[in-house]
Amino acid sequence: MTRYRHRAGELLVHADDCAALRPALAGFGYHPAGVSGSVHRFTGTRPVPEVLAALGSRGASPNHLFGPDRIIWGDPGMRPKPTHGELTPLSRSDEDPTVGVIDTGILLDRGCPHPYLANRVVFDQEDVVRLERGEDGNPVGSAAHGTFVAGVLLKQVPAEVGVRVRMKGVLDRADGAAEDLAVATAIDELREEGITLINLSFSGATWEDEPPKAIEAALRRLPPETVVVASAGNRSSRRRVYPAAIKFEAARPREVDQNHAWVIAVGAADSTQDSATPRVADFSNYGPWVSAYAEGVDVLGPYFRLGYPTEPAGFNGYAVWSGTSFSAAIVTGKIAAGLAKAGSARAAAEAVLRPLGVAKPPTVCVQDVNGPDHVSYVAGVREPGV
């Protein structure tokens, strides 16, 4: 069975299965505790794995937890690092939000977002994340992840294009976890706001490799012109992770279904050794379910503002960070940059992943159990010397 994280004492059941499962769940002490779209939450005290094992494959699943895998508490080589690089602050824009980012939320300092972002990030009070500090006074946890993702995304957009980000804060600032239902609710809210391009820079394993119920249901509710870009995870594994691996009625790998939102799974590429021949980053997940690769090693973006963290860390308001989170942000930014010209997010995504008029579109060669495969590579903006 796949290792996964979940909320203790919570099970999710689709509305179509509630009538059949309610008596069995009641027998285990689980009772209805709310509805999100077509998914019902049941709560109880018996351990979730024990209940699921007894039920078998009868329609209930955990309330899964997802997060920015490994890049905060795992491999020290993947944590944010100080840099001398900086970015010119963005110009202001009065355009409506173009792209939705579901993440930790936006970090404020003295009431304002990072100066690089100008007013390009739109958020509500509940989308603001507070700074957590350790005993040495330095920030800990995932607070800056959403700010960094938004910055990497916007960095791909020409200055004259008025792209703005609608931030939805759902990842826990301390442990980086986001539950299935919270993500689904944020997707629904972005849909209601008319946003058709969404970035999900988090991932996780699920019960017996099945898609998470609430997120999958929310993605099904999106109009078919919507594009969702999701990070493929940082476990150096072929195993599928979600939400990136959610696909709708695709007959072949990477085939695009026109009747549902297009979910683009993005892995990390490494071009630091040879910019002409990018390869799959050592930490990136891979496999036929990954739609594209983008730069994911030592990506520059806005981090804690000047003076945070304290010495000797030496951050200057920016950092370089590695992970598929930022590869996904690069792809989302490239799509956002072309959205107005293309007319729809789907058309813009096609232009980014399958450019017309290019004799030899850039690819990453993936060595897999089925032999070599050439997958679309999306080059991000790189600053000299970074």
Rank of each mutant, 00 (worst) to 15 (best):
A347N: 13
V381Q: 11
P211G: 01
P361F: 05
P80A: 12
S57M: 14
G307Y: 04
D298F: 07
E189S: 12
G357C: 07
A245I: 08
K81N: 09
S36P: 00
F326M: 05
D209R: 13
I71W: 05
A348W: 03
F304W: 15
P23Y: 11
A205T: 14
Q258C: 08
S376P: 13
S57C: 10
A276Q: 15
A150E: 00
A340K: 04
V369M: 11
G9E: 05
A251E: 12
A337M: 14
E132D: 12
A342E: 04
V51R: 02
M167Y: 10
T45M: 09
D17Y: 13
H40E: 08
A351P: 02
N316K: 00
R3T: 12
V13G: 03
V170D: 09
G357V: 02
I335P: 08
P361L: 02
D172H: 13
E135V: 13
T310W: 09
V280M: 00
Y303I: 06
P361Y: 01
T185Y: 08
I198P: 01
K334W: 02
T272Q: 14
A8V: 13
P224N: 01
V122Y: 05
E295S: 15
D180T: 08
G77E: 02
P372R: 05
G176T: 08
G27Q: 06
A351M: 09
V227Q: 02
D17V: 05
T104C: 10
R164T: 06
G74H: 00
A265T: 02
V163M: 14
P23H: 13
G317C: 01
H14I: 03
N316L: 01
A251S: 13
L108M: 11
R254Y: 13
R130H: 15
A329F: 03
E126K: 14
G74T: 00
G169T: 10
A205G: 15
Q125F: 07
V161F: 01
P384F: 09
A328I: 05
S325I: 03
V170T: 10
V320C: 09
T98Q: 03
E86L: 06
P361S: 11
E192K: 13
K341D: 15
A265S: 08
D209I: 08
L154W: 03
G146H: 15
E192T: 14
A143G: 02
R382A: 09
P309I: 12
K213Y: 07
F28S: 05
L356H: 06
L190N: 06
A144P: 04
K341C: 15
S91F: 00
A244G: 06
V165R: 03
A20Q: 09
S284D: 02
G333I: 08
E126M: 13
S327I: 00
R252F: 12
E126P: 11
A15S: 15
P62Y: 03
W321D: 05
D124N: 11
H40I: 10
L52E: 04
P223I: 04
G338P: 11
P47R: 11
L353Y: 01
E10Q: 09
L90C: 15
R221P: 15
V170M: 10
T98A: 08
S61V: 02
I106C: 07
K341T: 15
G162E: 03
P139A: 12
A60G: 06
R133I: 09
R254E: 10
L197W: 04
G105F: 11
R3F: 12
R110V: 04
S322M: 08
A336E: 10
A250T: 11
V101S: 06
R235N: 12
R5P: 05
L353P: 00
P223A: 06
N234W: 00
